[in-house]
Amino acid sequence: MDCKSCNKTQLTPFFCSCCNVLDISYESSDKFETLGLKKSYELDKKDFEDRYLTLSKVTHPDRYQDLSETQKTKILNLSAQINGSYFSLKDDLTRAQLVLDHLISDGMALDKKSLPKNFLFEILEIREEMDEDSTDDDRLEEIESEVEGLRKSTHKEIEKIFQELTKLNVLDTNHLQDVQTKLNTISYYDRILEQIEGKLDD
């Protein structure tokens, strides 16, 4: 998007860093767009942090003390929107899911609930073992590190698929379905880790 006053590409749809013009009424549920990023898993970490810093500064409520209450609220909303986008996109797995969500809403047919074969049986077995009386803290810690390992390798696999897709420069449905299937496993691992934490704290 080009700036109306200087014709240069704006940093985001609501801010031109060149002439410092800010549209405080900007509202979007698109987290990529809010930060002026293209909808992709790949992220230039430095650029990403720089954007966040710049946008946080220009929307900082302290700079707008003299505005009307309505305008102050707008600034506050915009600033919250920037924060929300930043923290969602910073997380690799959330960003991956957001990319897929955009593709799905653009019409790509992905099954959002798919899981690897036998996955739930494996999860059930782990949950059952966690609840057995014979499972002591040492065993719980073993399970914890096993599940952490599974989560980490899933994360790596997802990253690898995205790298491959970038290299091929295609949006292949099979690959992306594979990503979705892997992403769907994460909440089960997280839940187990959360439960183990709770049990070990008791």
Binding site: L115, I123, L124, R127, S187, Y188, Y189, R191
Partner: peptide, 11 residues
């Protein structure tokens, strides 16, 4: 029947 909720990781 074995089902899961991906939103919360329940089984």
């Amino acid at each position: 029947g074995l089902v899961g909720a991906p939103e919360c990781g329940d089984v």
